[in-house]
């Protein structure tokens, strides 16, 4: 733990000494509110404490740090604790830095834990691509859409639901990008198919909401 900012040391100590879930959450919140970059390693550590309240406060804090938190988040993904891993990917998805792409892509398709996959899938739809990221990597959108298509057939409704949310944000971001016309068409076809045929009414409803919010189908329908 590297605390180069002396002001946050007592806050880090308070987290280590927290003796109840409520004091832990309060201590994590106090640290997150400093918005000090030195708090990042400790906030990441909190993701592994198996305390969902503290983890969500830590995730919010990391998201606030933005791009500065990305390298450490990527470096310290916990391969042995799926709860911590899901929180890390949730933070990476919300920060939406394209450096997380490969990690999100792999987790979306292959992680064993649904919570991790949902976070990764959602993130694939929200990454903020810049033209410079795509130079020499024309396959990025292909790989995104083929992974989303794949996971949209999963037997777990939460995974299909996440795939729809990701399709929606991906289409919304790239609808004016002529290079992705064919991929967009595939994504839209899949949304329509899920809206009509998915066995789960909540999944059908989410697909319908995606279509409406993309203003593909009039609200009255």
């Amino acid at each position: 733990m590297i605390a180069t900012d002396p002001a946050i040391e007592p806050l880090i100590t308070a987290i280590a000494q927290a003796d109840s879930p409520a004091t832990l959450i309060g201590a994590v919140r106090a640290l997150a509110q400093t918005a000090s970059l030195s708090a990042i390693p400790t906030l990441i550590e909190v993701l592994g404490y198996n305390n969902p309240g503290a983890a969500s406060v830590a995730v919010a804090g990391l998201v606030q740090m933005g791009e500065a938190a990305v390298p450490l988040l990527l470096e310290q993904i916990d391969d042995y604790n799926y709860g911590a891993r899901a929180s890390s990917l949730r933070a990476l998805a919300a920060i939406a830095d394209p450096r997380a792409f490969e990690v999100l892509l792999e987790a979306a398709a292959t992680d064993f834990a649904p919570s991790v996959r949902r976070a990764a899938i959602k993130g694939l739809g929200t990454l903020r691509w810049q033209p410079r990221d795509l130079d020499g990597q024309p396959s990025i959108h292909d790989r995104t859409v083929s992974t989303l298509l794949l996971v949209s057939h999963d037997s777990d409704w939460t995974i299909r639901y996440a795939a729809i949310a990701a399709f929606q944000s991906w289409i919304f971001t790239l609808q004016n990008c002529s290079e992705t016309t064919d991929l967009t068409r595939q994504a839209l076809e899949r949304l329509e198919h899920l809206r009509q045929t998915d066995e789960d009414e909540v999944v059908r409803a989410r697909a319908s909401m995606a279509q409406h919010q993309l203003t593909i189908v009039p609200y009255a329908q």
Binding site: N51, P52, G83, W157, E201, V202
Partner: peptide, 20 residues
């Protein structure tokens, strides 16, 4: 609620299913 997201998703699904 300070609970894992998977439980919250399931509960909200129950609300939505009831509503639908």
């Amino acid at each position: 609620a300070p609970v894992e997201n998977s439980f919250k998703l399931l509960a909200l699904k129950g609300l939505l299913g009831h509503h639908l």
